[in-house]
């Protein structure tokens, strides 16, 4: 296998006057509107990609704020109501001694979303302002973001299960809080943001610097 650093010898579809379908890999001449095999619309590069990335990401950031400020769960124990936010839930789990589960929730609802915001910002910024990070590293970062992002939904599902299951008359009741909605929206928006990113631009920028 060739060393990934020596990319100068590689010809891209765009440089050959071709456009590749990202769905099925088939090639057509630049200018074809749709893929003749799978019917997807063809775009050599998605020119509006970065705008879409930033727009969805800002929407995701905005939704992430109330997701942390408002309660995820409202627990009613013997008539006493207590609210818990995302962080509150994690702290509660630590008090119960469930370190492992606390770690899962903390990673899924805090580390992954924030890491994802930073990673997408860095990737989008690096297209316009090339830096020393290699294209290969950035490609791997993008793949990680795309793969991991959906796992943030865990906490929303936890709220759904708890609030359907825990309805024990006057003893204890659990209801979903408004933050569950904002959090779910935030995850969906950042997933759309990551999907809008056209990873081929990472490699184009690299090519411009080398030239």
């Amino acid at each position: 296998m060739e060393d990934p650093g020596t990319t100068a010898t590689i010809l891209t579809a765009r440089e050959a006057g071709l456009v590749a379908c990202t769905g099925c890999g088939r090639l057509d001449h630049i200018g074809e509107p749709t893929c003749s095999l799978c019917g997807a619309s063809l775009d050599s590069r998605d020119e509006q990609s970065l705008q879409k990335v930033w727009a969805w990401m800002i929407a995701g950031l905005i939704a992430y704020i109330p997701a942390n400020l408002y309660p995820m769960l409202e627990t009613e124990t013997l008539g006493r109501v207590s609210d818990s936010t995302i962080i509150g839930g994690v702290i509660e789990l630590i008090h119960h001694g469930s370190w492992g589960v606390a770690a899962i929730v903390f990673v899924a609802s805090v580390v992954i979303p924030i890491g994802k915001f930073l990673a997408i910002m860095f990737l989008a910024y690096s297209i316009k302002h090339p830096d020393r990070t290699s294209s290969l590293t950035r490609q791997h970062l993008y793949e990680a973001v795309e793969f991991i992002g959906r796992w943030s939904m865990i906490d929303v599902f936890v709220v759904a299960i708890l609030s359907s299951l825990v309805h024990l008359g006057s003893v204890v009741n659990v209801n979903p809080g408004i933050a569950a909605v904002s959090f779910a929206l935030s995850v969906a928006f950042t997933m759309l943001s990551a999907q809008s990113f056209d990873s081929r631009q990472i490699w184009d920028a690299d090519r411009r610097v080398a030239a």
Partner: peptide, 8 residues
């Protein structure tokens, strides 16, 4: 073509 980076 590579769907991720467009290399032929």
């Amino acid at each position: 073509a590579c769907p991720a980076c467009d290399a032929l």
